[in-house]
Amino acid sequence: MDSDSATTHRVNESREPIIVADGVTKIFGEGETKVEALRGVDLAVMPGEVVLVMGPSGSGKTTLLSILGALLKPSSGRISIAGIDVTTLSERRLPNLRVRELGFVFQDFNLLSALTAVENVQVVMDFAGVAHAESRQRAERLLGDLGLSGRLSFLPEKLSGGEKQRVAIARALANDPAVLLCDEPTANLDSKIGHDVVAHLRRIADEREKAVVIVSHDERIKSHSDRVLWLEDGQFKEMRTMAVDPVCGMAVERETAPARLELDGETYYFCSRGCMREYQEGIAAR
């Protein structure tokens, strides 16, 4: 996938958004320990669209993803998934929504360690009441699509990180949900493998018209995304003003960066003088 794919993937504008978040706030705790993790977040994601959410640590990314995935109730605001108002749905009906409309991909894969690759995919079809023979066939096909035909009966412990994450993606797709929610899907993978995983997600969005929301610090995912959103202090902010510290990876505002460095016509922003010094020493060492 080339670097300007963001512009080549046109999203069908005439469609209804599959994910709608409307004025979502989330408050944890109260009094002294009160944390406003989200403050009035609005978001709409179309089928086939890949949205990347970036932002500093603690900015509320995981919280947002959990709320979109109906794993957490917002303090206020509204979420609808595939036209279903999730916020008013009873606890009893949530499993059905999760299993049919949502697919999750996690940073640390979260496969069931006692099940083989194909069983890990099948098990969510069990939750949806799919017959065994059919679930087997579908799981094999999904894993085959992700290049895992030779790994069907491997236990997770025998799979590489990239293979595990592809099994997780197959599992997320098992019941053909409208939405894929991915939290740091590449963080535990080396860069080549991480790139493959994102390429798979991109392809899935295109071919299967899935809405994909990825939370990540990984800059390279930008090129595969239709949109990049910057979440900070529980709110979406302008992306332009932000830069990433090349040493520690922290997001820093360009205007207020504690340290900056001009080098060969490029400007680098740092979270601290320490990071800048480390960067300079690194360059000197080369």
């Binding site: 499993p95 999760r98 299993v99 049919r100 999750f104 069931l112 969510v124 939750f127 949806a128 019941n175």
Partner: peptide, 15 residues
């Protein structure tokens, strides 16, 4: 932890 995960990806409590 795996049971929690199963719940997150759609398992009912009865399951």
């Amino acid at each position: 932890r795996e049971y929690g995960l199963m719940k997150a990806i759609g398992a009912r409590n009865s399951r």
